[in-house]
Simulated assay, not measured.
Amino acid sequence: MTHEQTTGPARPPAPPLPDRPPTVAYESLAGLSARCAAWLSAERDRIEGELRAAYGKPPTAAVTEPRPAPDPVPPAAAPLIELLDRLAGLAGDPPAAAGPVLDRVRRGVVAALAASGVTPVEDTGPVDPARHHVVATRDDPSGLLSDRIAETVRPGYLWRDVLLRPQEVVSYVPYECPRHPQAEAECGRQDAR
């Protein structure tokens, strides 16, 4: 028996890792970051070239200018939104609701949010699961308002096109009669009216 028959086929030697000297044990974080960024950029260009070649489009020059990073959400948005929620909770107290101070503070917070590009979401009309969170339902005996917003519990907030918080709403649902015989008789009388 040959050596290959007892141990299996010979494996080719593993290729060395590109751009990595084997003697360097430690590398600075900045150097590692720069090397990773260069590798990712080269891989992106290679994949874009393969995709263009596969779909018959002539390859164009690789993008050399850096892509702008998306602007971060203003850091003051979350505390200001929380402050508006607390102010809305104070509105139920008779002393706080009677004075104009609370309303002036609320308007100032809304203006600060608007200055940072945050707008409130207080939609009416159909419920959109991408923008609204249904926290309760209300019967719709007419059947005309089903899946529409009955009222807003808490407003939502948008920053540019990013939803920071969905609007919390009460939604109308179709009215269904109860299932026991006495209630069905009453339901039948309501329908006959």
Rank of each mutant, 00 (worst) to 15 (best):
V134H: 06
L83R: 11
E50T: 00
V135M: 15
P58A: 13
G117N: 09
V121R: 14
P141D: 04
E50P: 00
V110P: 00
A53I: 02
A77F: 09
R52K: 07
T137L: 02
P68T: 07
L80G: 06
G56T: 02
V135S: 15
R107W: 07
A62S: 10
Y55R: 12
P129C: 13
E65Y: 12
G125A: 11
A112G: 13
G49E: 03
L90K: 05
R67W: 06
A114K: 13
V109I: 15
G125D: 11
D71G: 05
G117V: 09
A69I: 00
P79L: 01
P75G: 10
G56S: 02
P100Q: 10
P141N: 06
A69Y: 04
V134R: 06
L51I: 05
V118L: 11
T119H: 10
G117S: 09
V121E: 14
R104Y: 05
G117P: 14
V73D: 02
A115L: 14
V63E: 15
R104I: 02
P120Y: 04
P129F: 14
A76C: 06
A112Y: 09
A96Y: 12
A97S: 15
G117W: 11
A111D: 15
V110M: 13
A69G: 06
D140T: 01
D71P: 08
E82S: 12
A62F: 03
L87E: 03
P75M: 03
S116W: 02
H133N: 03
A61M: 11
D123W: 03
G92T: 13
L113V: 04
P68E: 11
T137W: 01
A88L: 01
A98P: 02
A114F: 07
P120C: 01
V101N: 06
H133I: 00
V73G: 03
A96N: 11
D140H: 01
L144H: 10
D103E: 14
D85K: 06
A78M: 04
G99P: 00
G117L: 04
L51S: 03
G49W: 00
P141M: 02
R138Q: 15
R131F: 08
R52D: 08
P74C: 03
P120V: 03
V118G: 07
V101C: 05
A91Q: 14
A114N: 14
A54V: 05
P66G: 12
T64V: 12
P141Q: 08
T64K: 13
R67G: 06
E65L: 13
A114Y: 04
A114D: 15
T124L: 14
A111V: 05
S142I: 00
R107Y: 07
